[in-house]
């Protein structure tokens, strides 16, 4: 299945891209996806505790299963003003 991942703010800096489309095995959940992303972008691990995850534009509490076409967004808080 294909899942789109969007990076914002410091997550975008770490990943170096604003979004990627990943080909994932069936049964991959958001937790596995995050682990995959951390192995791809190790610095992501440092900011992960502060990051809010959105699944299809909804706040994600805990872990969720993923299906083809899902969009996961990594949203760190920004403070600048």
């Amino acid at each position: 299945m294909k899942v789109q991942v969007m990076f914002f703010a410091s997550a975008r800096e770490v990943a170096g891209v604003s979004n990627v489309e990943l080909q994932l095995d069936e049964g991959t959940d958001t937790q596995i996806l995050l682990r995959t992303l951390v192995s791809q972008y190790p610095t992501l691990n440092e900011i992960l505790p502060t990051i809010v995850i959105a699944l299809n534009e909804e706040y994600l509490e805990g872990t969720s299963s993923l299906k083809d076409g899902d969009c996961v967004a990594l949203i760190p808080p920004i403070s600048g003003g």
């Binding site: 900011i47 502060t50 809010v52 706040y59 808080p77 920004i78 403070s79 600048g80 003003g81």
Partner: peptide, 25 residues
Amino acid sequence: CMFPTPRQAGQCQRCADAGVLGVVP
């Protein structure tokens, strides 16, 4: 509720450090 975990020192992004295009804020 939204951001229960504050960022650690050193992860902060301030305009003075990260830059900002004025129109954005």
